Computed example of a mutant assay.
Amino acid sequence: MYFLYTIIASLSLFFILKWMKRRRYFMELKRLDGKTVLITGGNSGIGKETAVAMAMRGARVIIACRDPSRAEKAVREIKLKSGSLCVFPMELDLASLRSVRDFCKSFLMREKRLDILINNAGMPGVLDWTNDGFSMCFGVNHLGHFLLTNLLLPRLKECAPSRVVTLTCSNYKYQKLDFQDLNYNLLPFFTYCRSKLANIYFSQELARITEGKGVTSYAVHPGFVQSSWTCHYSFPFQMLMQVIMWMFFVPCEIGAQTVIYCSVSDEAAEHSGGYFVDCQPATLRPFARDAGVAKKLWEASERMVRLV
């Protein structure tokens, strides 16, 4: 009898975990021939799987990564998996505003098109600071991508219709922004939550200011994914999270589906400024839909990255 209970419990757990990890696949194979896609952090995880999907559709794919050797290795793997030779690395460190500016200058000189910008790279909550004195999490996840997008926005407008897809997380709901201390860094998890909320406001305000100009913007929660974010933490924590991720998180290929959907789907094009989960629009908490806060964050970010 004990054996039977064990079998039933094991099967029940198996099916519960399968149910928790269910996700939609985006099956539309829309071609992207002649289009250029830029993916930050495209050397691993969701970014890498997204790069494979974009390359398979015929796009010219640029992988932006702070480590040239890792980028080169990823490019070889993406080419092999996608069967495309149009995948190229470029060096970018989102923790340095100078690096972002240098990257954009090089990109605009080298690339004549930019049709899809995927702000994928992210930093988990860590007690560290960027070269410019911002908390690492807020600086990389929001400010680095904010500056990158603004500097590349003229090229996106030239190539309209174009899209900007920014990865966020459902953890945004656990924090609100404090404009007296956007750099909050005492509790890393809450700093991460604030940065993900900032991504959502950024995507909404970008949609507002580019309305009618051919550029659309989307915020994507890819789900909880089996990526390499734990590398920033201690070995015991990594081992614990590997077990948890295996049980409850989805593979990167599945996590990339909503990113791909927002990058190419005609349906998504009708929801600029929207928040997407599992290849469909999702509802945000009321405080995350505040247009006044989104505008205020945009203006504060302009000052922080010295755009004004």
Rank of each mutant, 00 (worst) to 15 (best):
L97C: 06
W129V: 09
L127H: 15
V37R: 03
S84N: 12
S69R: 14
A55P: 01
F88Q: 11
F103D: 03
G42T: 07
M56E: 13
A121R: 08
L127F: 14
T36N: 02
G125M: 12
R57Y: 10
A74S: 15
G42V: 07
T36I: 04
L80E: 14
M123A: 07
R60Q: 12
L94P: 02
A53T: 00
P68N: 11
I118H: 11
D67I: 01
K81W: 11
R66F: 01
L92V: 11
D102V: 01
V75M: 10
E111M: 09
L127W: 15
E49A: 00
D115I: 07
M90S: 04
A51S: 09
G58M: 10
G41D: 13
S82N: 12
K105M: 11
G122L: 08
I39Q: 10
I63A: 10
L108Y: 00
K48L: 06
R70A: 06
R70I: 00
I116P: 05
N43D: 13
R110L: 11
D115H: 14
F103Q: 06
L127V: 14
N120F: 07
A95H: 01
T50Q: 00
I63P: 03
A64R: 11
S84I: 12
S69C: 08
M90T: 01
T40G: 02
A95K: 02
G41R: 08
L114H: 06
G47E: 12
I39L: 10
S44W: 00
L97M: 14
I63Y: 04
M54Y: 12
R57Q: 08
K48W: 00
L80P: 00
T40L: 04
G45V: 09
N119D: 09
A55C: 04
M56C: 03
V37N: 08
R76E: 05
G42I: 08
F103H: 04
K112P: 02
D115W: 03
D93H: 10
W129L: 02
R113Y: 06
I78R: 08
T36K: 02
A71M: 13
G122Y: 04
S82V: 14
N119V: 05
G42C: 07
N119E: 06
C86L: 15
C86A: 15
E49V: 00
L38E: 11
F107S: 01
L108W: 00
A95N: 11
F107W: 03
R101E: 15
R113W: 03
A121P: 03
E91N: 09
A59G: 11
L80W: 05
L38Q: 10
C86Q: 15
S44H: 06
C86D: 15
R101I: 08
S69K: 14
R110F: 04
C65M: 11
T40M: 05
K105G: 05
N119Y: 05
R113H: 14
L97I: 07
N119P: 02
A55T: 03
S99Y: 06
A95L: 04
G58N: 10
